[in-house]
Amino acid sequence: MKAIFRREFKAYFRSPIGFIFLAAFFFYASLMFVFINLNSQTTLMKYFFSNISLIFIFVIPILTMRTFAEEKKSKTDQLLLTAPVKISGIVLGKFFAAVCVLLIAVVATMFYILVLNSYGEPVFSEIFIGYLGLFLMGTFFISIGLFLSSLTQSQVIAAVSTLAIIFFLWFSSSLNFQFSNMMDGAFHWLGVTLDWLIEFLAINNRFTDFTLGVLNFVPVFYFVSLTALFLLLTVRVIEKRRWK
C-alpha cells in the first residue's frame, strides 16, 4: 500500500493536476475568506465553511477522475492487478494519496486563522471543528470519486458523474421532493422510504453542525461509514475485474 500511496501522491505533483487543484481550492477559499471574514470584519468562520465546502463539488472530481480511469485506459491496471498487492491496498493507497492532497489544501487555509488572530480573537476550538467537518466531507467525496473512476475508463465520465452525484447529495435537502405526498395508496411506503433516504443522504444538513462549532458523532459516523462503504464498493469493482 505504501508503494502505491507514494507513486500516486508523487503523480499528483508530476502532472499539473495537483497544482491546479491546490490553486483552484486556495483561490476560492481565499475569496470566501477575504469577503466573508475580512470584509465583514468578523472572526466567525461559520459562513466561510458553508461556502468553501461548495468548491469541493468542483475540485474533488478533478482530483479523483484519473485514479482508476487512466490506469484502465492506458492498460497499466493489468500490471497493478497482477502485482502481488492486495486490492484493498491498491484502493487505500490511491485513496490516501488523494486525501493527502486534500489535507495539504485544507491545512494551507489554516493560515487564515493566523490572519484572524492578528486582528481579533478567534475561538480556535470552534474553527478546528469546522476544519474537521470539511476534511471528513472531503474524504467522503474522494471515496465517491474513486468508486466512479473505477467504473469507467473515461476520465471525463468519471469527473462528470462524480460532480453529478456530489451535486445531488449537496442540494437534495433543498429540493424538498416530498415523495410521500406524491405517492398515495399502495406506494405511499415507497414515498416515505425515498424521503427518508434523501434526507439521510443530504450532506448539507450533516455538515451544518461542524460549521456551528459542535462535534456531533452522528455526522462524524455518517461521513466515516459512507467513506468506508464507497471504498468497499471500489474494492469489489476492482476485485471483480481482477477475478475476471
Binding site: 477575504v34 471574514n37 475580512l38 470584509n39 470584519q41 468578523t42 472572526t43 466567525l44 461559520k46 484572524l116 486582528y119 481579533g120 480573537e121 478567534p122 475561538v123 470552534e126 456551528l212 462549532g213
Partner: peptide
C-alpha cells in the same frame, strides 16, 4: 453568540 469582531484597516485588507 459565536464570533467576535476584527479591527482591520483598508490598507491591510
Amino acid at each position: 453568540m459565536p464570533g467576535g469582531s476584527l479591527t482591520i484597516t483598508q490598507g491591510h485588507f
